[in-house]
Amino acid sequence: MVGRLGVEDMSDQNARGGRDGRGTRLVTPGALLGASEGRRIGHGVVENEGQLIAVKLGALIENEDEVSILPSYTRYTPRPGDLIIGVVEAVQSNLWFLDINAPFNALLPMSLGPGKAEFGGARNVLNVGNTVLCRIQEVDETHSSVVTMKGLGLRRIDSGIVEEIPPHLMQSLFSDNNVLKSLKSSTDCRIILADNGRMWVDGDSNSMSNVISKLEQIRSMSRDFSSLDSMVEILQTEVH
């Protein structure tokens, strides 16, 4: 019935935000966006019989000749290479199952796990409830993924706290590197942004509470695409 694009293009990380590509107006699924002639189809848009149609709720973005939607709400879909913060949900003798804040769990096989582990000794290395920093190794056509901890900086995380923000929002907020830099310095915290809508924060108690309350404010504004600038300001403000 409708011409569709491949699965990858609907993945929420492809929703290009950024303050230069901000949206013009909110569109709802089914909204007609004009003729497809001469225009490229971006995230959240499909073509049917020469007409472009929005399929997601979000801000309409018309950059040059591309039409796309910046979604109001996103869930994470894994892509190879993504940096992930995961939590161990289950352990088998040579395999860990991780909750990665996505529709499907990720698998971490022993061969890709941290350091040396004997067969059957998985629990000694990583147990249920542990948090890890890892990367997506591969994703199959059903969005099930395999992750790896072999890589620079990938490790079990034993301090700090993990907070969640909608994935596309994370991209938009931190597309400018200076935003993260100033957040770290203004709060005196170590921060790692993962691609699955999670962020690791570590510092002393006050500093962490500072960051958490900023994120709480941002989460409450997260559906308002016009408030992106205010959100960035919140991240960059020093709290005394």
Partner: peptide
């Protein structure tokens, strides 16, 4: 509710 949840739909 589906639109609000960001679920892609061709129409409402």
């Amino acid at each position: 509710a589906l639109a609000d949840a960001g679920i892609p739909m061709t129409d409402m």
